[in-house]
Design a protein around this nucleic acid. Structure first.
Lengths: 171, 171
DNA sequence: GTCATACAGTTCTAAAATCGAACTGTCAAA
DNA sequence: TTTGACAGTTCGATTTTAGAACTGTATGAC
């Protein structure tokens, strides 16, 4: 599988990964949500090579995640601003942060706290079902093909290639 | 910044990215949630090279995201099973899928639908505040340093590094 | 007993991506 | 005139990944 094919895969997760699924892109987006907007800002915050930064920003603009907006004429300069499509990445960012907060903190505790302006409290993000509002557990979710699923004939086989019964495990 | 340093960064998102922030790892985890457990299963589902697959699985086991469990003696064979730490990645996976469902579908619609066993309906994941239950919007969240924040003196400067000279002259 | 196959890797070379540092170009302030 | 801020681009060296073949245990078919 080549990386440009990822966006054509009949899997929303693969498509998302095709857009934001590499380390630098994710870190760039973190900076975006922390209000960094300019080339130098990203570069000095992340220590990314300028070459890669330019490339990643271009890609994010192409994908409609960032918008390149002039903030000064002569010399022409631009800022990179999250579009709505980009802002919609927020739950992904928060989910990443929350997993790190849960499983990767050292003895000193969380590096950052998040306060919800609406209720004024420090919070954790919780993922719930849009229909019943209950927290989602992997085991309570059943997945089935939707309208955009690939027909069986087009599917790349992900099952064992016609296994003719194996060794000591009879069933 | 080297990739192994990422896990030491005082940022939960960076640490998480250090563990799962590359394309193959994310796709391997997708397969885990789709109940793939064995080496050949991952390999044929993803088309990943065997070399990388072995490496990534090892890393995920080292990180405690997967557990390597024997399922047969002679020849010794193992399965890779999500630990609780791994299962806790579910909100990240769902957030990735949901963004793809929202922004990356073609005219045919979603490749997969998700049904919540508890309420029986197809749903979208919604991220809410643990304290008040309201959906989270980036603009309504304020971020501030927590106990594990790096003190200003230890911080890696994200401002210009007091650069004394430029370009070609070394005077 | 020999052969083909399943499974879970390891090893090797070539190709691609990334790093690190320097270079380009515009403009403003000293 | 010189220096510095900013936003990139270019280029050689290093690191990762791709792609294919190979290793080794064990099983069932012939």
């Amino acid at each position: 599988m080549k990386w440009d094919e990822l966006e054509q895969e009949p899997c929303s997760m693969a498509r998302t990964i095709g857009v934001i699924g590499d380390r630098w892109t994710l870190l760039i987006l973190r900076e975006c949500f922390l209000r960094t907007r300019r080339f130098e800002g990203f570069q000095s915050a992340l220590g990314i090579t300028r070459h890669l930064l330019a490339e990643r920003l271009k890609k994010l603009v192409r994908q409609g995640v960032l918008r390149r907006v002039p903030y000064q004429e002569s010399p022409k300069r631009h800022e990179y601003i999250l579009t709505q499509k980009g802002l919609d990445l927020y739950p992904i960012m928060m989910a990443l942060v929350h997993w790190g907060d849960t499983h990767m903190v050292d003895e000193r505790g969380r590096p950052l706290l998040h306060q919800h302006r609406k209720c004024g409290k420090n919070f954790d993000p919780v993922m719930v079902c849009s229909e019943c509002g209950e927290p989602l557990l992997a085991k309570e979710v059943h997945t089935h093909p939707g309208p955009g699923a690939r027909a069986p004939s087009e599917r790349i086989s992900r099952d064992k290639p016609a296994k003719p019964k194996t060794r000591k495990q009879a069933a």
